[in-house]
Design a protein around this nucleic acid. Structure first.
Length: 259
DNA sequence: ATGTCACTTTACAAGTGA
């Protein structure tokens, strides 16, 4: 079973590249974030034409998540109880081929001084309470998405430059540690113990070309899923300007392969 | 202090969010 997570930064702008990604990898599931479109305008037909069901939870302009899958997702839910940013479409969950999948677009936070940063921490706290209440780490569960947090300095191209800043602060990293302590495995790290691989590069300053990246897109699996995990890879080519129609997203797809 | 991108608007440039 192959599951891909990708922050597309607008599903309409990235439609051709998303269709090409599906044809290239033929994953069982593609979780997308930052679709930036109201559900009525999501390009459902283009995906069904190549064999993918779409479950969408979006809004105009901002945020938005969707699960595209070859077999239909069941028990689909939008958002979560206790969400302190319930007006923002950031979480869609469902079960595909026996795996409960949570597709997350975590609040960016802007900077550690911003009120949005406090909201980000509260949101992550509420998300953990949801897991504790409604999920069991002894069952097959996979959280994927844009977490907007680097778990540790190995995930940062220049840790000294980023130290204490948004995506790299102790407060954010504590929340990831709490998710792991509850019973999840950072499967990317398990397969890449020495660091990275980066998943996001700022559009500005030639960051991709210079290797200035962060690992902020994560796959956190309960042990029943982690033990099936054969590989976790990044499709770095997708981040290259030359690799497809139109411009790339600022994130690269994260590919999780299960036995 | 940032060599960008996508989206929106009583729009045709400028603000916002990333």
């Amino acid at each position: 079973m192959k599951i891909i997570s990708w922050n597309v930064n607008s599903i309409r702008t990235r439609l051709e590249r998303t269709l090409a990604l599906l044809e290239r990898h033929r994953p069982d599931v593609l979780c997308v974030q930052e679709t930036k479109v109201h559900d009525d305008a999501f390009p459902v037909d283009e995906f069904s034409a190549i064999g993918y069901h779409a479950q969408v939870f979006g809004q105009k302009t901002y945020n938005g998540v969707a699960i595209l899958s070859r077999s239909p997702a069941s028990d689909v839910c939008h958002g979560f109880p206790g969400d302190p940013a319930a007006d923002q479409a950031r979480v869609i969950s469902g079960t595909v081929d026996g795996v409960q999948i949570l597709n997350l677009y975590v609040i960016n936070g802007e900077s550690v001084e911003s009120p949005k940063f406090q909201l980000k921490l509260q949101w992550l706290d509420a998300m953990l309470r949801w897991l504790e209440q409604d999920f069991d780490p002894g069952r097959p569960l996979l959280l994927v998405g844009d977490f907007n947090v680097t778990p540790d300095d190995r995930d940062v191209h220049d840790p000294d430059k980023w130290r204490g800043r948004v995506h790299c602060s102790d407060a954010e990293r504590d929340r990831i540690r709490q998710l792991v302590a509850w019973g999840l495995v950072d499967v990317t790290r398990r397969h890449h113990p020495n660091g990275g691989p980066h998943t996001w590069w700022d559009y500005r300053g030639g960051a991709f070309h210079r290797g200035w990246g962060l690992r902020i897109d994560l796959a956190l699996a309960s042990e029943p899923v982690a033990s099936r995990c054969r590989s976790v890879e990044i499709d770095r080519d997708e981040r290259k300007p030359s690799s497809g129609e139109g411009k790339p997203s600022d994130h690269a797809p994260l590919i999780v392969h299960l036995n």
